[in-house]
Every structure is written in structure tokens, then in C-alpha cells.
Design a protein around this nucleic acid. Sequence first.
RNA 1: GCUGAAGUGGUGGAAUUGGUAGACACGUUGGACUUAAAAUCCAAUGGGCAUUAGCCCGUGCGGGUUCAAGUCCCGCCUUCAGUACCA
Length: 1057
Amino acid sequence: MFINRKFALLITENITMKYHFNEIEKKWQDYWAKNQTFKATNPSSFGGGQEEAPKYYVLDMFPYPSGAGLHVGHPLGYIASDIYARYKRHKGFNVLHPQGYDSFGLPAEQYAIQTGQHPAITTEENIKTYRRQLDQIGFSFDWSREVRTSDPSYYKWTQWIFIQLFNSWYNKDADKAEDITELIKRFSSEGNTNVNAACDDNVTIFSAEEWNGFSSEKQQEILLQYRLTYLAETEVNWCPALGTVLANDEIVNGVSERGGHPVIRKKMTQWSMRISAYAKRLLQGLETIDWPEPLKEIQRNWIGKSVGASVTFNVIPNVTLSAVEGSHKIDVFTTRPDTIFGVSFMTLAPEHELVLQITTPEQRAEVEAYIEATAKRSERDRMADVKTISGAFTGAYAEHPFSKEPIPIWIGDYVLAGYGTGAVMSVPCGDQRDYDFAQHFNIPIPNIFEGVDISEEAFADKENTIIANSDFLNGLSYKKAVKRAIYELEKLGQGQGKTNYRLRDAVFSRQRYWGEPFPVYYVNGMPQMIDAKHLPITLPEVEKYLPTETGEPPLGNAKKWHWLQYGDEANVVSKEEFENSSPLERLGGALELNTMPGWAGSSQYFNRYMDPQNDDEIFSQEAINYWQQVDLYIGGSEHATGHLLYSRFWQKFMFDLGLVPYDEFAKKLINQGMILGTSAFVFKARPFIKIEDRFYGLKEFLNIYFSIDVLNGEEFVENVNGTNLILKWLDEKWPIALEGQESHLFDEEVILALQIRHPNKYDLLNKIKNKVYFKLYQEIRVPVEFVDSSDCLNIDGLVDWSNTQYINARFVGNQDGTFKVKRDVEKMSKSKYNVVNPDNICEQYGADSLRMYEMFLGPLEQYKPWNTAGITGVHNFLKKLWKLYHQSENGSFYVTSSPPSEGLGEALKTLHKTIKKVEEDIENFSFNTSVSTFMIAVNELTAQKCTSKAILEPLLVLISPYAPHIAEELWSQLGHNESISTASFPKFDESHLVESTKNYPISFNGKMRFTMELSLDLSKEDIEEAVLANEKTKEQLQGREPKKVIVVPGKIVNIVG
RNA sequence: GCUGAAGUGGUGGAAUUGGUAGACACGUUGGACUUAAAAUCCAAUGGGCAUUAGCCCGUGCGGGUUCAAGUCCCGCCUUCAGUACCA
């Protein structure tokens, strides 16, 4: 303790002299929090003649607060968006830059199942960690607007939107969602014949009279087929042992990834979202938004638009079947109606509903066996196995719409029940799958392409297609033939042009506890929405977070989970309480047991930030009309088909409802690349002994680890240190009596070779002295914190850290005593020991260094490896920056307000060059190059010994978005009382960059040889003359006459000759 | 297979409309300061030949356009990512 006083004294003396980043950063983070520096103003607060500032909305994809906390890869996007947000504030914008948590999710629930701890508690703890970590990096978030998806005051509105979706249907004529009451009106006045809606495939036609005659339940059932969210039987992957539904990627080889339990396909009643209604608009909308092309492409593929025709084939009635059973139609969708004359068979999915009806008695056994065999195969199996061709003939035939020829109908599992109509017209000459199928089953392959050989494979090239052997389509190109075929089909009443989308409706139910409850109760099996005024319906307490014994979702464990309502009075009660209540004027019933999926809460949060505390509306119209939409959204591309597609869907829905002014929620989106870890490896080696040119391995061997430059890819390596280790070890372990004892050390052959001839220990050790070799056995990862900037391993640190693995280990390194590891770039993860924690970086180098270094690593969108060693570069830069403002003799703050007349020109040039470049860089999201620019500027100003306030003050504003803490500190030392975030961005002045001369590169045949300083006033001719007169030019030409001289004034001179 | 992105020193990367390739850093080597270490500062650093000037080769590979190509065009190779029996 006695040194501390002296030490403390030293610090106080130096506080203004040295760059004490820890103190500075703490100070300003506290200041920002206390003064609410980054609070965004809503229009309602402008008032009092305050002018309405232009708005800018910068948003990060909000995090799931995991227990592991943040690693250095996570904040990359947040830093970029923070720089942009701070920049926009300097540019005079009212910036909305909020943050929150996507706090419902599986890990918390899994943890709850294991420990019994309520997910809300662990989530709260995790959020605290996240908040602390985010705060220490110095983000300019407006925390007063924080939202959490698991907060009832937030998920109230998630439930509210669900109700709106339930109360809506999609009118294809108006091409928008409309209130369900409109649909009910039309049903009761005209039935559903003329209703053009996005609905289930199997709706039955009814008249107004029929509708009005239906029971209430029947009417509700029909309406479910039209609602934008609906209950439907869906096939799911059910794992009985785990009691839950699994996603496709949770199943490996037909069994659950966790535990290896069998998985069956099961039909379950689930909520679904009719996102398919929006397929067309989701696709078209992509044209209007500035999102990365690869991301748009992923969404386009996911939506999967294909243009073609639907064709109806009549099944030829089979004499053995009755007339009713015999008349069937098969609808197919094809993108190639031009190839209709190439059809030589049809293929139905084995699950197709017509299969059993049309199968002839003779084929029945074979077809049923095939159906059974396919049902056993998981979807994943079927997808993975593309090579095996299988199928069965139904015995039935369809009639070709034009040629009236009979076409055999097959079933095959290469046709998917879930896509199109689950049936295809097979054109083997034009589709490789059809071709393979036809070949396998000896079905004819008629050629309908002019001048094309199809003896080897199908011909699928649309561009070069000329149709032949096709009646009225002969000689036509693909495009013309398609049009003509559709025209003829329509004339026949057996088809029409059609656009198909791959996009499926999204299942919205999860058998989980930790998610939003549905605002739904059931009466006679029919779902009823709870009135919005009773929201939120909060998650009930349960004793266990597992499914019930009867296989119900975890909410089935809740003691109180019935809705009971009389008039405005409503409560969640127990089953008994409900059953004992008076049925008179009672509303209610059992509440929904499923919860909503992870993407429910994240599909509208960006709008809620605009007015997050509003308890009466999801957001006020005033707020949404002011903030409008996200101007810049930054996040990972892994959300391309999840969050980003569903959010666009909900936003379009809310647009249809007139709630939001734009039907796209984010104008511009940037995908930040991932920061990868640099793993470190040591080489575990196995010793061998070489006897008569053969290598014999030691059966049991030491924990020996080699440095990369000792053991690098070589087959067998000799090493003195290693050999000594082995000999010493053998010496210690060698039993006094040899016979039979050493067998655990060597392979048997070695024993045979040695035993007889060398019964004496020392004799043997001597004998093998020069014959010990090492071979790489395993590359083992070591924690990167024990590796320094030169890839040298801190062996003591590693041994101290490990409990067992390295306790008795030997490390064989270089002669100079260092031990180098192998480095490899991999995804950052705990199991790879390559995670770098931002806490340590902030402590050691400061948040400003972390922020700058993350940007300095490379372009934002790019994947790039993290290497802590490099951070000293930006850290040194910040120290130099600090020094630039502390140039007095004793190192204290020194800035002159009256600049020396001499030298200011150079400094102004440096400043304005920097302003220009940094502004361009930020606008282009090229943050890495800005950091270099700052380095150059500070290097130049330091060399110029610049102390002028006129230069150093604006420079701080430029740097402040990147390194806000140091900028605030120096700003206050300059005498400012307000945060630097209120300062306006310096104005670029071209006049300071005007040059009178240019150092021209002089090239010969395109190769630069030397440079020449020439006035920029010179004409082309003057330049040419000056260059040709130069001694060096003559030297280069060596007497040759230049054929041509290219002069680009201000750029370059090139001499050809 | 299809779709998309990218290949530049030992490493991360720069070169914005074709005009001095390798900015800015890391690392490495040498030097200064120090009893020493750290910190700091200075110098060198694409490869090769010469070691003084200088010369040759160099942006995945092979061609082409051009006075001039990392950048534009054609053909390939490799890596990464997404996706997959989509009719």
C-alpha cells in the first residue's frame, strides 16, 4: 500500500499530460448517461417555436441476450451504425438510434428446463451483462426507448397485430388486406363465387343462401380459410421422446440431433401466417429498397416465382371403375407449356390425393407398397438422395389435351406434394429428371426439338429452342410457342397462364414456454380472439417448462390458463373456476397452449421504437409520420429469409391497414461481415524409433507438444530436445527386469526387434539415441490469450490455466527458447478457444481503440479475421493524437488560438484533405479508410508541429464519431462546456487544396520511370517540351525518337518509343 | 448442379471515373535511449539480379482491347457463402 500514494500523486500530476483512456472513457460515458445526450426528440416535444429538425433513423438488428455475453465480433455493426449516427448528428439531424433485446428464445428455456430457474430471471441477468458491455464501448444509443420482446408492455402489441391479422383477409382484386367484416358482408350477399382472395386451396363454393344457412361454427371454419392468420393441420417433425416439434435442421439421419430419438411426421393443428398472399408484393418491393444484392437474391429464390401455365389433364375412365370414380382431372403447373407435345407420361407425388382413386386393381399392391416406402423416408432423406430413381405405375392413363393420346400416370417421390399441385406433366426430352425417370422405367422419350440430339440427356436450353413434332407449335421459338400453347389451352378450357410461387405459409405455433402467448381462447374447438382492451395476455407461471405428460405444450402445465369474461370484466382463471362459473353471458374457454415463434417479436420492433412507451396505440400517427421508416439498418445476412422477410410481410400488412406510411420498413440495409477468430494450434507429436529403416511407434507416449517451426508438415522429424526427453523418460520408466514389462511402451514388433538383442537398458538407450523421430499426431487448439503478437506461446500461462491437460506436458520449441504456434482463421467460438472478449480490450486499450480497430480491420461487409496484436497500431495513433494537443514542454495541454502565420497553409491543407476524405468515406460506409486518413493527418500535423486551434478544433469533430471519448475530453480541454456531439461537422473548403505544381509521373511505354515537378499552368505542349528536354528522358530513350507522347495535364505523361 | 461474392507482400488491407500498385497498420530486421526491460523514437522491409547508380519480374491463370489494365472484355482455375428433386 505504501507505494500507492506516490503512484496516485503521479497520476494526478499527469492526468492532463498522459492519455488515461480508462478514466476518460468512464467520465464521458457517465456524462452522456446523466445528460441524456443522445435522446432523440419526437415531434410532440418540439413545441415552443422549436424548428422541426430533419430526421434520421439508424437501427441495428437487436441482439438475443445470450449467457455468453459479447465477443469482439458482435459490436462490429453497432460501431459502424454508431459512427454513422454520430456523424448525422454533427450534420444537424435529429437522429433516432435505439437499442433493445430480442429476449424470448430457446436457450433461456433450455436453461430453465435444466435448472428450474425462470427464464425471465436468467434473461434479466444476461441483459445486464449485455448492457454493461455495450455501455463500455460508448454507443450513442437512446436507451430511454429500449424495448424487450419478452416485456408484456411490448408483447401486448405483438398480440395486437396477431388479432389484426386474424381479422383480415387478402383481396386479390384490390391487391391488399381488408377487414374480415367486408368478406362476411359479401358472403351473406353473394356467396364466395366471385371472391378473389388469397385462401386455402380446397375452399368449397357456396351461395349467399347457403352461407346464411350455415351454423356459426361452419361459418367460422370457412372464414379460417381466408384469414391472414389461420389454424390449419400442418405436417411437422414430431419427436415423442422430447415432446416437441423439431425444425428440419434439428434432425440428423431421421433421428433428433439431441439424444438421437426417433422423429415422426405428424399432423398437428397449428397457427399459420398467410405470407403467401404477399408473395408478389414481397418480390416487387425488393426493387424499391437499397439492400445488398446477394440478400435480395436469397429472398427472390425463397419467394421463387415461376411463370408458366396450369394445364388440366382428364383421366381416361377405367372400365373396371364406376363412372363416378372414373372421371377425374389432374391439374399440373408447368413452366414449359411449349413442350406439351413432348409429354410421354405424368407423375404424381405419392401423397397426391388422387393416387389411390385412379390406381387400377392390378397395380394397387405395387402402388401401396411404394407409398408406404416413401412415407418412411424423412423429407431430408428424400432431398439428400437425388440419385436413386424410384416410382410406380398406377395403371391409369390421362388424355393428352391436344393429341388425345393416352398418357400413363406414374407416381414418383421426385415430385413434391407441397409444391404446385403435386403433379407434373413429364417431358423427358426437356427435363433431366423426367428424362432419368423415363429411361429408368423404359418410357418413350419423344423428341420435340428441331436439330437437337437427346440420346444422351435432356435439352433444357430455352434460348435455342425451336419446337418440332408439335402440331401447331412447329417451328416456333420458346417464347412464341409458350404464348400459342396457352392460347390453345384456354380455347380448349383446359388451361391458362399462371404464375406460381414457392413461398409457403409460415407456421406460427411453437410448443414452447418462453414466447408470446396467443390472445386466443377456444369455444367448441373454434379459436376466439380476446378483445384488444384486455391485452396483454401475460405468460402464466408453470412448475415445469417441459411438455405435459399428455404431450401438450408447456403452457399445459399452467394451473390458471382459462379465459373468463363477463362484459368488461375479464380474468385468467383455473379450469375448475371456469367450469364452476355461471354460463350466463359468459365469454371464455381454454386459452391457447402454443406460443409464438422467435420472429414474432422482431417483426415490428423498428416501428415501436418510434413511440415505445405508448400504451394506447402501437405507435402514434404523429410519431410514425415523422420517423417514417428506418433510413439505415445494419445486421447480419443470416436473417435473410427469417426476420427480414417476415418483417417486410408485417410492414406491408400494416401499410394495408393504413398504419404506416411506407410498405417497406428499411430504406437501406447493410450486412456487416463476420469477424473471425485466429485460432492457435500446438502440435501434439508421437515419438517413433527407427530400426533398420522402419519406424516403430511408442505405444504409450508423453504429452509432447511441438512448436510449428520444429514440426511443420514434415513426415518424421529428428529433434535433439525431443530425443532427450524421450530418452530421459525411457530411462525413468524402464523396468529393472526387461522381460515382459516394456510391452506397454512399444508396439510388438519393436519389442521383438529390441528385446533379444538389447537386454541391457543402457545398451538399448544408447542404441536408439540417434533414432528417435517425431510425427504430427494431432493439432491442438490453445487459448489465444496465451499467444503474443509474434505467435509465441506463453507456456507457463497455458499450464497454469489448464487443470489437467498440460500439467505434465513437455513443450519442444526453438533454440532461443520461444515456442511458436500455428495460426488459422476460423469462426469465433468458445469451443475453438479463439474468442476475444471486448471487456479485456477495453480495459487494456480502451473503447476508442476497440472502436477504431474494429473499423480499421477492413470493409464493413467483408469477413475478416481478428488479431488482437494489430490493435497497438490504432492505440498508438490515439496516443499520438493526444500528444498533438499536449505539445507544451512538460506535456500539458497546449493549443494556440492565434496561429503562427507560417506553416498554417500546410496544416489547412492537411485538415481539408481530411475533411473531404472522411466525409466521402462515411457517406460510402468505408470506415476503414477513414481511420487511415486520420493516421495520415495526425502524422502530418505532428511533423508540422501544429498547435493551432483553427486546425485542431475541427479535427476533433471529424474524429469524434470514431473515437468519441478522447474527442469529448480534448473538446472540453479546448474550453467547451457542451458535448462535442452538438458541434457541427466542419465545412470542406476546396480553396485550401489548390496546388500550383504537380509531381508528374513520367512513364515510358506505360511504365513509370521517374517523376518531374511541373507547374499546373503549363499547356500540353509546354509539358511535352519540358519532359523531352529532361536529362533522364534522354537517358531512357537512349537516342531513340519517341513515336508518341501522351500528356494528360494534372495526371501523367507517357512516352511511347 | 444453380445463384451470389471474392482472389493484391509474411499478415489485415489501400489504390473512388483505366493514369506513380502495395497507402495506413501489424509483423520482421537493424539502430537510438536504458544497468536492463518495457515504453518511446529513427531507418529498412513485394520478389530477384546487382548492392553505387541501375535492371528485370510482379495484383489467381491464359488471351484480348488501350499510349496506359489490379481496374474494361473473353475463356478458365481456386476459395467462401447461400440454395437445392421448385416441374
